[in-house]
Amino acid sequence: MKFDELDSRMRVFETAHDHCVLPGLYIVARLDGRGFTRLTKEVHQFEAPFDTRFRDLMLETVEHLMNCGIDIIYGYTQSDEISLLFAHNETTFSRKLRKLNSVLAGEASAKFSVLLGALACFDCRISQLPNKEEVVNYFRWRNEDAHRNALNAHCYWCLRRDGKNATTATSMMKGLSVADKNELLFQHGINFNQLPNWHKRGVGIYWEEYEKQGFNPIKGEIVPASRRRIRRDLDLPMKDEYSKFIAELVSAES
């Protein structure tokens, strides 16, 4: 069998189940660290429940993903997860799901591993969202999840520092209301509302325009030039204000 014939024959098996995100749909990718609880608590022993070193590794990874050839207008990270909002008309890899998932997971795993100096792995899945409202709902969901996780994490580690083992600490938290959890923290000298906002809300990463002085060689004069750079926002709003923030970001891109 000649190569061209063999090539055509075998590629059918490789591409038979290719699926592409339809034009007009918004794309959001969510990446999660695989086995990061063991990686960060046992192998490398980052500070619990939040560690600025780990946060910065995640932020560096998000920025890498926003500069790896896919037009991403917003990145969001909390704990060991990353969410990425693509530009509405992004067509990289012809919007093929297998390519987007594999490339983003590979890029994130490689970048984080290099930064950490040890192997780390991310998985990736794509959400195909029909309109701006669902984009807002998606990021509101992850923002609310960050708040819930932060409250639970601080309570859990207060109990662990009291000498409770993992099973006991988890059991003691079952059935506690939000008010009960806040009271538990208060009894340990922690006012949840006064904790750093990035603990409770995650971190947003997006592009911003800025003006830079440039030189026009033709006219021989200094002229203003528009550039863009990535901004890290460690003070994201919550609830309806966060929804408004995301809605404005999506509208500005459309």
Rank of each mutant, 00 (worst) to 15 (best):
residue 164 K to W: 14
residue 164 K to S: 11
residue 165 N to V: 08
residue 165 N to G: 12
residue 165 N to L: 06
residue 165 N to Y: 11
residue 165 N to C: 10
residue 165 N to T: 04
residue 166 A to W: 05
residue 166 A to C: 02
residue 166 A to F: 11
residue 166 A to P: 00
residue 166 A to D: 11
residue 166 A to T: 11
residue 167 T to W: 10
residue 167 T to Q: 13
residue 167 T to H: 10
residue 167 T to P: 00
residue 167 T to N: 05
residue 167 T to E: 14
residue 168 T to D: 14
residue 168 T to K: 14
residue 168 T to P: 01
residue 168 T to L: 14
residue 169 A to H: 09
residue 170 T to M: 10
residue 170 T to R: 14
residue 170 T to I: 00
residue 170 T to V: 01
residue 171 S to Y: 07
residue 171 S to A: 15
residue 171 S to H: 13
residue 171 S to E: 14
residue 171 S to V: 02
residue 172 M to T: 13
residue 172 M to P: 00
residue 172 M to H: 02
residue 172 M to K: 09
residue 173 M to F: 10
residue 173 M to H: 09
residue 173 M to E: 04
residue 173 M to I: 09
residue 173 M to T: 09
residue 174 K to Q: 14
residue 174 K to Y: 09
residue 174 K to D: 06
residue 174 K to F: 09
residue 174 K to G: 03
residue 175 G to E: 01
residue 175 G to T: 08
residue 175 G to K: 08
residue 175 G to C: 08
residue 175 G to H: 03
residue 176 L to G: 05
residue 176 L to S: 04
residue 176 L to V: 04
residue 176 L to R: 13
residue 177 S to T: 15
residue 177 S to V: 10
residue 177 S to W: 07
residue 178 V to I: 14
residue 178 V to G: 00
residue 178 V to N: 07
residue 179 A to V: 13
residue 179 A to S: 14
residue 179 A to K: 15
residue 180 D to R: 11
residue 180 D to E: 10
residue 180 D to S: 08
residue 181 K to A: 01
residue 181 K to I: 05
residue 181 K to V: 01
residue 182 N to L: 07
residue 182 N to M: 12
residue 182 N to Q: 13
residue 182 N to A: 00
residue 182 N to V: 01
residue 182 N to I: 04
residue 183 E to G: 00
residue 183 E to P: 00
residue 184 L to Y: 06
residue 184 L to Q: 10
residue 184 L to I: 09
residue 184 L to E: 05
residue 185 L to G: 02
residue 185 L to A: 04
residue 185 L to F: 05
residue 185 L to D: 06
residue 186 F to L: 13
residue 186 F to G: 03
residue 187 Q to M: 12
residue 187 Q to Y: 06
residue 187 Q to L: 11
residue 188 H to S: 10
residue 188 H to D: 02
residue 188 H to W: 08
residue 188 H to P: 02
residue 188 H to L: 05
residue 188 H to R: 15
residue 189 G to L: 05
residue 190 I to F: 09
residue 190 I to E: 09
residue 190 I to Q: 09
residue 192 F to P: 03
residue 192 F to S: 02
residue 193 N to A: 15
residue 193 N to R: 11
residue 193 N to Q: 12
residue 193 N to P: 01
residue 193 N to T: 10
residue 194 Q to M: 08
residue 194 Q to K: 13
residue 194 Q to S: 11
residue 194 Q to E: 12
residue 194 Q to D: 12
residue 194 Q to V: 00
residue 195 L to S: 03
residue 195 L to Q: 04
residue 195 L to P: 04
residue 195 L to W: 01
residue 195 L to V: 05
residue 195 L to C: 04
residue 196 P to H: 03
residue 196 P to F: 03
residue 196 P to T: 03
residue 196 P to E: 03
